[in-house]
Design a protein around this nucleic acid. Structure first.
Length: 140
DNA sequence: GCCAACGTTGGC
DNA sequence: GCCAACGTTGGC
């Protein structure tokens, strides 16, 4: 039973373009220093899908990613407390779905992105995932 | 650049 | 264990 997620990143720090450049090998999702976000990553399974969201500059869902390595110690952390998964880019969102659209859509009003925008790694429900894919023109 | 919301820290 | 103070995030 696959789950769905949302990964948030400031494009100035780590952008979708950079993520895509890593190709199939993917990249560690480092830098998370929040227990809720870490626990979400611990719960991820190989092949779980997620959104790649640009915060601050953009504020839109720009890509689809997939978990390609289970949670392990974050190599940028100096303590074992912090873990991360590896993710790889799977597809572009042809028509990026903006935060404004998400907020305006009654079907998406319960999204964590709307209600707790500060959480950097969030769970997304299956219906939310499919709805945003549809809005964004992603073929599933 | 401002500020609200949230999480963490530390004094008691 | 409570809560005030502080730091960070991210929308606006």
């Amino acid at each position: 039973m696959a789950n769905y997620w949302l990964f948030k990143s400031e494009p100035e720090v780590w952008s979708w373009t950079q993520q895509k450049a890593k190709g199939k090998a993917g990249e560690e999702w480092t830098g998370v220093r929040n227990y809720q976000a870490r626990n979400n990553m611990r719960a991820m399974q190989l092949g779980d899908k997620g959104f790649f969201y640009h915060s601050n500059d953009g504020r839109e869902v720009v890509g689809i990613v997939e978990v390609c390595k289970l949670a392990h110690k974050d190599s940028t952390a100096d303590v074992d407390t912090w873990e991360c998964v590896d993710i790889r880019a799977v597809a572009d969102v042809p028509r990026p779905v903006t935060l404004d659209e998400i907020k305006a859509d009654p079907k998406l009003k319960d999204m964590v992105l709307v209600n707790n925008s500060r959480l950097s790694v969030q769970p997304v429900s299956e219906s939310e995932f499919k709805h945003i894919c549809k809005l964004g023109g992603v073929k599933t």
